Simulated assay, not measured.
Amino acid sequence: MAMMMTVAALLPLRSGAVDRGKQVMVSQSEPAARLLDTVENAIWAADGQAADKPVYVLYSTECAWSKRLYDDTRGLAGKVQLRWIPVAGGTAGSVVAARDAASIAGAFGGRGPRVVDVAAAQRGLAYNQGVMDSINYQMRPYDRSSTFAFPTLVYRTSKGVKLVAGNPRNLAALPGEVLPQPATMPTPSGVALSSHPLSLVNSRNLPKWSHRQARPVVFHAAPSPQAPPIDDLDKDLLVPVSGIVGTTGWIEVAPWGPGKRKAYVHDPVMARMATLEFRVRPQGGQWQARDTVQVREFPDAEAPVLETLGPGERYQRRGVVERGGDVWEQIVLYADGTPGYVRR
C-alpha cells in the first residue's frame, strides 16, 4: 500500500512530447522534495559544465535508448549538467567507481575503466538499483505498472519536479525548462552509505517481522533514513527477516520486489528482541493469572504485548525463563502453539 497522496497529474502523451513512456509533474512541495532528494543522493557522474541546471538520468550502460540520449545531448554540455545514475549494465560499476564524464562515455562504448574495488562498486550499483525502485514506488499514485525504466530524467522546473520516462524529442527546449539553482556539486549520501559492507548478525528469535501501527511502515534501500524509500507494509503483514544490522536498530528483510533485493526497516525494539539471549527451562502444568497481566512476545519488559489477560484465566505452561533477575513464565498463548511470556 502506498503512503503518498496524489500530488501530480499524468500528462497526456501527445505527438512531439516523447518517443515513448510518460511524463509526470510533481507539484506539491513535500513529495517533490522527496523525489529530488532521492536522485540527488544517488551515486551519479556529472556530464557538462552547467552545474546550476542539473538533470538526473537513471539509465543502463547497455540500453540503446540511453545511448541515444547520450549521443543526442552532446550539444547541451554548456547549457545543462546531466548527472547520470547507472542502474544496470555490465560496465555500470565503472561509472559508479569513477563518477566522471570519461567513465560515462567509456561505459557506453563497452570499455569502462578498470575498477579497483569491485565489491564497493557493486554495493554502489545496488544502491542505485534501490533508487530506481524508489522512483517506481514514489510514482505509484500515478501508475502502478513499474514502467519508469531507462532512461528516466528527473529535474526541477518552475512548476515542480518533472519526471520524463523516455527520450524527449525536443532536447533543445530542455535547458529552458530546467530551473536554475545554486551551482553546487554535493557529494551524494549514497557514496557514504554504500562505502562499507554491512555488519549483519543472525536474527535468533525473529524469523518474520511485522508492525502494529495504524499507518504503513516504509522500507528503505539501505539501513539509513537517508536511503531512498522503496516500499511499505500494512499493519500485521509479515515479511521474512534475513539479518540484523549490528546494533543500529535496522532489520534486513529477505529479497523484496521485482529485483529481489534486500530492504531495511528501522525498529530498534524488535531488532534487540531478534538477538535477545535467553534459555527456556522446560516446565509443564497449568498457569493461571492471579491479576490482570500482560503477555509479551519475548521475555523482556520492552517486548510487544500480545494479549492482556484477566484474573483466573488459565493456559498451559511450557517453561520458565530467568533473565536479569526476573523470572518469566512461557505459556502456550494461541491454538497454533505460539508462546507468550508473563513476568512472575
Rank of each mutant, 00 (worst) to 15 (best):
T247I: 00
S210Q: 14
P216W: 14
G243F: 07
L193K: 07
G259Y: 14
S195P: 06
A221P: 13
G243E: 06
Q226M: 03
V265S: 10
A227I: 05
A227T: 09
P258V: 10
P258W: 14
R204T: 11
H211F: 13
H211Q: 14
A222N: 10
W250G: 00
D236E: 14
V201R: 15
P228C: 08
H220E: 01
S242E: 12
H266P: 04
E252K: 15
K260V: 01
V191L: 04
A214R: 15
D267E: 07
N205Y: 05
V265I: 15
S242H: 03
I230D: 11
V191W: 05
V265N: 10
R261E: 12
P229L: 04
G257R: 04
S224I: 04
N202C: 00
V217D: 06
P240K: 09
L206M: 11
T247F: 00
V265Y: 09
V218Q: 14
R204Q: 09
K235Q: 13
S194G: 02
I251A: 03
H196D: 07
V218G: 07
R261W: 06
P255I: 00
V241S: 01
L193A: 04
K262H: 15
L198Q: 09
S189H: 06
F219A: 15
D267R: 04
V269H: 08
A254Q: 12
V201W: 02
V217M: 13
D234E: 13
L238Y: 01
R215L: 08
K260E: 08
P229V: 04
I230H: 07
G243M: 05
P255F: 01
V239L: 13
V217A: 11
H266S: 13
D236C: 05
V218S: 13
V265W: 09
V269N: 11
W256D: 11
K262Y: 02
L238N: 10
K260W: 02
P240D: 13
S189Q: 12
V191D: 01
S210T: 15
S210K: 12
Q213I: 08
V265T: 07
N202L: 02
D236P: 08
A192H: 05
V239M: 09
V201E: 07
S195F: 07
Q213K: 15
R215T: 10
